[in-house]
Amino acid sequence: MINYNGSLVADSQVSLHTNRGFLYGDSLFETLRVLDGRVLFLEDHYFRLMASMRILRMEIPMSFTMEYMEQQTAMLVQALPDAPAFRARISVFRNPGGYYLPEDNHTRFMITAEPLQEPLYSIKYSPYEVELFRDYYLPKQLLSTLKSTNRNVQITGSIFAHENGYDNCLLLNDDKNVAEALQGNLFMLTGNHLVTPPITDGCLNGIMRKQVIQIAKKFDGIHFEEKSISPFDLQKADELFITNVIKGIQPVTRYRKKEYAINLADAFVQRLNARIRLG
């Protein structure tokens, strides 16, 4: 069951052959974590989606308010079997018609959801090895920062990681600096200096990235900075971790011959969960 433009319908009732998201990647999406019917970090998700739609010149319906977005997500989740939490995805796409040039800039939406077994975030204390993905690069442009359905770099990178036994890969931009991981933003701790690449390096404008930055700026003893990260910097770091809204914080334990601690990542997860409990 899915929510298609405000109605709960079976998956089979949705047509793909005229869907511009399927035909041209003319679509944006937000991946949401839902707890007790509440979309975590709702305001950040909503405003990122609205900004992205404006960048792609999509018409935003007047009815599509932040409250409406949460209500439509909750309506679907409540119709599914109960679970501790849910992973939901809202996709928006232009109305059918046209080829590269749309006939209509008005939009529709679709929401899907699946259960998660843990209500809050936790650290996975297991080996997690990454490698650089060098086949394709992320361009340093505004479109790279959006969650569009054009994810070919991430898809081919995920296949490369799977074929070579890595848990994740780090993506490079066209300056050959590390921009992000396949499924999230990258943070690097060296001494007491915590760094993440700036949005101008082509990384996703991540929702969990924003939460972690807010925590870092108030964390005693940590100096935070948005700064480009070179592959050479990775070898000198004490900790690496990857962030996204579903997993929260995923520590990296190994990159090539370098092994990393997970102390800061563990402390950040505790503060992140405290924020969620406070609502």
Rank of each mutant, 00 (worst) to 15 (best):
residue 3 N to W: 00
residue 5 N to G: 06
residue 7 S to D: 15
residue 9 V to R: 10
residue 10 A to M: 15
residue 11 D to C: 14
residue 11 D to I: 15
residue 13 Q to D: 15
residue 15 S to I: 14
residue 16 L to Q: 12
residue 19 N to S: 11
residue 19 N to K: 09
residue 20 R to F: 07
residue 20 R to A: 02
residue 22 F to I: 04
residue 22 F to C: 07
residue 24 Y to N: 10
residue 25 G to S: 11
residue 26 D to K: 01
residue 29 F to G: 01
residue 30 E to Q: 00
residue 34 V to F: 02
residue 36 D to P: 08
residue 37 G to F: 03
residue 40 L to R: 09
residue 40 L to K: 05
residue 43 E to P: 06
residue 44 D to F: 04
residue 44 D to Q: 15
residue 46 Y to W: 00
residue 47 F to D: 02
residue 47 F to V: 06
residue 49 L to R: 00
residue 50 M to Y: 01
residue 53 M to P: 07
residue 55 I to L: 14
residue 56 L to R: 11
residue 61 P to M: 03
residue 62 M to H: 13
residue 63 S to I: 10
residue 65 T to K: 08
residue 66 M to P: 02
residue 67 E to M: 09
residue 69 M to T: 04
residue 77 V to R: 00
residue 77 V to P: 00
residue 78 Q to C: 06
residue 79 A to K: 07
residue 80 L to R: 06
residue 82 D to T: 12
residue 84 P to T: 06
residue 91 S to P: 10
residue 93 F to S: 13
residue 95 N to Q: 15
residue 99 Y to V: 13
residue 100 Y to N: 14
residue 103 E to P: 09
residue 104 D to I: 03
residue 105 N to V: 05
residue 108 R to K: 14
residue 108 R to W: 10
residue 109 F to R: 05
residue 112 T to N: 10
residue 113 A to V: 01
residue 117 Q to P: 09
residue 117 Q to H: 13
residue 118 E to T: 13
residue 126 S to L: 13
residue 130 V to C: 05
residue 130 V to D: 04
residue 134 R to A: 05
residue 134 R to Y: 08
residue 137 Y to H: 15
residue 139 P to S: 11
residue 141 Q to D: 13
residue 142 L to W: 10
residue 143 L to G: 11
residue 148 S to K: 01
residue 150 N to S: 14
residue 151 R to H: 08
residue 152 N to Y: 13
residue 153 V to M: 00
residue 155 I to Y: 11
residue 156 T to H: 15
residue 159 I to F: 13
residue 160 F to K: 09
residue 160 F to M: 08
residue 166 Y to F: 15
residue 167 D to Y: 04
residue 168 N to L: 08
residue 169 C to A: 12
residue 169 C to I: 10
residue 170 L to T: 04
residue 171 L to R: 01
residue 173 N to E: 05
residue 174 D to K: 09
residue 179 A to C: 02
residue 179 A to I: 03
residue 180 E to C: 02
residue 181 A to S: 14
residue 183 Q to Y: 13
residue 186 L to N: 07
residue 190 T to V: 06
residue 191 G to H: 02
residue 192 N to K: 06
residue 192 N to A: 07
residue 192 N to I: 04
residue 193 H to A: 05
residue 194 L to A: 03
residue 195 V to F: 02
residue 195 V to M: 09
residue 195 V to Q: 11
residue 196 T to I: 03
residue 201 D to I: 08
residue 202 G to Y: 06
residue 203 C to N: 10
residue 203 C to R: 05
residue 209 R to F: 03
residue 212 V to W: 03
residue 213 I to Q: 12
residue 214 Q to Y: 12
residue 215 I to K: 10
residue 216 A to T: 08
residue 217 K to L: 10
residue 218 K to C: 13
residue 219 F to E: 15
residue 219 F to S: 11
residue 221 G to M: 04
residue 225 E to A: 05
residue 228 S to Q: 09
residue 229 I to E: 05
residue 231 P to A: 00
residue 232 F to V: 15
residue 236 K to D: 14
residue 237 A to K: 05
residue 241 F to I: 08
residue 246 I to C: 05
residue 247 K to I: 05
residue 249 I to F: 08
residue 251 P to M: 03
residue 252 V to P: 12
residue 253 T to V: 10
residue 255 Y to K: 01
residue 258 K to A: 12
residue 260 Y to L: 07
residue 261 A to I: 12
residue 262 I to Q: 14
residue 267 A to D: 13
residue 267 A to L: 14
residue 272 L to V: 05
residue 272 L to H: 02
residue 273 N to D: 01
residue 277 R to N: 12
residue 278 L to D: 14
residue 279 G to M: 07
